[in-house]
Structures are given as structure tokens and as C-alpha cells.
Amino acid sequence: MTRKPYRAPQRWSWWLKNPAYRRYLLREATALPLFIYALVLVTGLYRYTQGQLAFTRWLEALQAPGWLVFHAVAVAACVLHAATWIELVPKLLVVPGISGRSIKRGHQVAALIGSALVLGAALVSWPLAGGAS
């Protein structure tokens, strides 16, 4: 008897049919707002090289409601990206004698301390650098 195996094609909507796939694509999609945010920052640096007026205009343009909403989305994407990444660290970093849970906790604490230090440094250096004036 001849065989006639049926091959189901993988449709574009494969990720919609399972919550695990939807979570995965949401995690991957966090790269998009972060990419746009990086472009915004690079634009700011470029404006900075063009002089104070150009830089101030760039800062003012970012006060528009659309950009504020974008920044909120970018922060949420960044937090989700970090949280899901740290969740996966124990699968990559396996240290004999240290539990995956401890490795995860260590990364969470390090991420919080690191973020606090960067934020603290920015808040301290902002007035020293002359603030918004």
C-alpha cells in the first residue's frame, strides 16, 4: 500500500492558537519599542551636536502626548523584557550547589540595585550639568 502522509502547513497565525506562543511573541515584541526608543535617544544625541536650540526643541517635541504615551509603553516593554529574561536565566546559568531560584533572585536584586544606581547617578549629575537651562 502506498503511503500518503498529510502535512499541515504552518500558517501565519500559528502563534494565536496557544497562550504559551502568545506570551513568547509578546516577549519578543518588546524589542520593537526598545528599538524605537534607541532611535529617539540617538536622535537626541545628534540634536545635541547641533547646538542648544536644536536640543531644547527635541526635548520640547518629546513633551507631546503621543511621545509620553510611547515612553510609557517603552518602560512597560523594558520591564517585561527584563522580567522575562531574568525568569529564563536559571535555564542558561547552571551553577552546581546554587539553586535556580537563588540565581533568579540574585539577578533580580542586581537589576534593582543597578537601576537604582544609574537613576541616582542621573539625578545627581543632572543639576551639576546645568539641568534643563
Partner: peptide
């Protein structure tokens, strides 16, 4: 592998 992770679930 792109670390979908569903295999482990």
C-alpha cells in the same frame, strides 16, 4: 532555537 520554552511546559 529561539527560546519559546513551550517544550519544557
Amino acid at each position: 532555537c529561539t527560546f519559546v520554552g513551550y517544550c519544557s511546559e
